[in-house]
Amino acid sequence: MTIEDIIKPENLVYQKSKLLTEKPFHYCPGCGHGTTHRIIAEVLEELGVDEETIGVAPVGCSVMAYDYFDVDFQEAAHGRAPALATGLKRVWPNKVIFTYQGDGDLAAIGTAETIHACNRGENITMIFVNNGIYGMTGGQMAPTTLEGMKTATTPYGRKATLPAGAGFDGIPCNGYPLRITELIAQLPGTKFVTRQAVYNPACVRKAKAAIKKAFENQINGKSGVNFVEIVSNCNSNWKMEPVAANKWLVENMLPFYPLGDIKVDGKLVEK
């Protein structure tokens, strides 16, 4: 059997979702944004809700997410995506509304919008891509940057407090990495809160199932934010090869940002 015999439409088992446009992603090689875009598009295609979907793009690397999804989209100001989603969902309760945001957008400048959309229990889906760094602006510290992690604005590593020496030890410095996902899970307005990743096939499958649940909950429900964090990479700003970055993610990000469901059907998952 030759390769030509296999490559036939009837033997197709996997291809890029039709809900992605032909425009090539501008993301760096190996970036988890692309993978996350792909599985969101697959979920929307499988659910058949593309004619009812309005996405909200953030400011950050994924600012032009609207170019890649073949669904209607709005571009938000930095951090305001949950406010846009609220504004939309309240006047279009039957449409499928989702935000796509990075860590700086969702957990720094947009913290108020994030917490209050979650606390109001807006019936929306929020996708949160956490790579622990500001990608678009060139690798500065994010609220989710790990302690010790070197970034453009923490060139000697993030320090929550100043270290011993020179008599300043213990004084606040860069603060602590923020587990915003655990934080919003505490709010009564969140329904489904989960942390996933996309660095290997097994976790891509799980992440896709979680995203599907996050959309199904919205479609079948009346209230409650469905929140999916994707722990992702930033090869360029972590200054690593893509495969090495994924290994670093597993070894360093996941111990602090453990994968799994945090809240299901409005109930915190017992650990």
């Binding site: 938000a76 100001a77 305001r80 504004g87 006047v91």
Partner: peptide, 22 residues
């Protein structure tokens, strides 16, 4: 008609942006 008290003026105007854009 929907009436919503937002968490801030910033959030309110961005809600307006989204609904107006639809």
């Amino acid at each position: 008609m929907v009436v919503l008290q937002a968490e801030s003026e910033i959030a309110a105007i961005n809600m307006v942006y989204a609904a107006g854009a639809s």
